[in-house]
Structures are given as structure tokens and as C-alpha cells.
Amino acid sequence: MQVTLPPELELIVSRQLTSGKYQNAIEVIRTAIELLDKQEDIYQGKLGELQQAASIGWEASQRGEVVDGNIAMEQIRSNLKSRYSK
């Protein structure tokens, strides 16, 4: 497979080569593709977790296990304050 990069991507590859971290353009592109693949794996994992949590929440709401929205928001605010005030 041959790929032609647009000038803005060629510039990024050139900057990375100039930094001395990579020996050639193939290493830069390989690293970028590997990072993209890892990012996609993380995204898919988070999406699956979110879908599972939404399903659990939906089932709980169908059983009548709900919390008033104002109370829930106050709990979230309280948790955030305690987490970031340390």
C-alpha cells in the first residue's frame, strides 16, 4: 500500500523526525497508527461500559428504583467537591 500525505501531515512527520525520536517516516506513521488503534480500543471499552451502565439504570428505573434528579445532582456535586478539594 502506498499513501500520499497532505502537506500538513508531512509537516507533522518532519517535525517528529527533527525531534530525533524517530529514525524515519515509517516509524512516525507506525507509532501514530498504533496510538490510533489503542485509542479506538479505549473508546470501544468506554462505550461498552456506558451502554452497560445505561442498561442497568434503565432496568432499575423500570423497577421503580429511581432517585430525584435534584438529590442526585447534589450527591454528584458533593462527590466532586470532596475529590478535588484535597
Rank of each mutant, 00 (worst) to 15 (best):
Q23C: 09
S19F: 11
Q44E: 04
I33M: 13
L5V: 06
T18E: 13
K86E: 13
Q44I: 02
W58D: 11
N79Y: 11
Q52H: 12
I56C: 06
I56G: 08
L50Q: 04
G64F: 10
V67L: 13
S55V: 03
Q23D: 15
K86L: 10
T4V: 05
A54E: 13
L35D: 14
L80C: 01
V66S: 08
G57V: 12
N24W: 02
D68V: 01
Y22K: 10
D41Y: 04
K21E: 15
I42E: 01
R77K: 12
G64L: 09
D68C: 03
Q52N: 13
I42F: 01
E10W: 01
V67G: 02
Q75C: 12
Q62T: 03
E40A: 11
V28S: 06
R77A: 11
L80H: 02
E40N: 08
T18V: 14
N24A: 04
Q51P: 00
Y43N: 04
M1P: 07
T4P: 00
K38S: 06
G45T: 13
A60Y: 12
Q75N: 06
K86F: 14
I26K: 09
S55R: 14
S55N: 14
E34W: 04
T18S: 13
D37R: 14
N24G: 02
S61Q: 09
S61E: 12
A54Q: 14
E10D: 07
P6K: 12
D41C: 03
